[in-house]
Design a protein around this nucleic acid. Sequence first.
DNA 1: ACTTATATTAAAATAATTCTAAACTGTTGA
DNA 2: TCAACAGTTTAGAATTATTTTAATATAAGT
Lengths: 142, 142
Amino acid sequence: MNNLNIYTKKLRESGLRPTRQRLKICEVLFSPEKTFHFTIKDLTKIIEQKLSEKISLATVYNTVHAFKKKGYLKEISINSDKSYFDTNVTEHHHFFDEDTNELIDCGKNEIDSVNIKQNITGKKIKSVEVLVKVATDNQNQN
Amino acid sequence: MNNLNIYTKKLRESGLRPTRQRLKICEVLFSPEKTFHFTIKDLTKIIEQKLSEKISLATVYNTVHAFKKKGYLKEISINSDKSYFDTNVTEHHHFFDEDTNELIDCGKNEIDSVNIKQNITGKKIKSVEVLVKVATDNQNQN
DNA sequence: ACTTATATTAAAATAATTCTAAACTGTTGA
DNA sequence: TCAACAGTTTAGAATTATTTTAATATAAGT
Ligand SMILES: [Mn+2]
Ligand SMILES: [Mn+2]
Ligand SMILES: [Zn+2]
Ligand SMILES: [Zn+2]
């Protein structure tokens, strides 16, 4: 079974119609061997470059949100004014390079599992994630 | 020495002129006994309510960024399209209530110190913070 | 094929934040 | 004391990410 059929099946199973646009976006997001992080702008650029197809910005937003809702993408909290998304949907930690604004996965085995002693009444823990900010040593004294 | 003099001194020492607006904002941010989290919108609302003074939105932004640069405020990474600020500038962890969008401090003693085994070549760790997302148990299946 | 619910689209709307450029004010030193 | 200047405030415009709108197109079931 080729990728297209796999994506078609995956989408149908999620109750999402396998449209031309969604299949193209699946191809871009899920065919790379490695998972990666991206912004909507990044994704739009990749689509423009790798595909002959033009996909409207609204559709890119719609699709990314639909995929997130289905659990095929994760949104990452970064100190920034734009959203980052992650094709690695497992719970994991990140390094954030403040010099380059680059987000780097941190292997689960690189950080001991975080033990939380406190709990919020009536609330359940949905995720526990660590963000390690890094930068070059020369502290910028502006 | 009253608060105003303290803030005046603090600002002067930072190379910031103790203007009427900055002193008012200091009062709002730093006189409460407890630290707290806020957005620019929150702060603007507090200023409108608690103070006779009107402070322009641009000045609120300018001041918050100036205070952040001087280390009197911290910006918090939340999965959202607006920035949260924290008057607690010590390194600490947070709970984020996904139902209410509320940010709650997690005592340093409630989470064991996080040990990072990986390191990024040429980069220094600037901060290590944990974000615990919580929500009511009934998972929303939308 | 026909129907209908879904999806795509361009364009407009929204919302947070930053920029601009003019007016204002705190500080300094003659 | 006060002129001069750098730093600050301000309203409003600009920018940017994201969402909404409403019209058109398409997938899927009959
Ligand atoms: Mn910012
Ligand atoms: Mn969002
Ligand atoms: Zn990741
Ligand atoms: Zn806090």
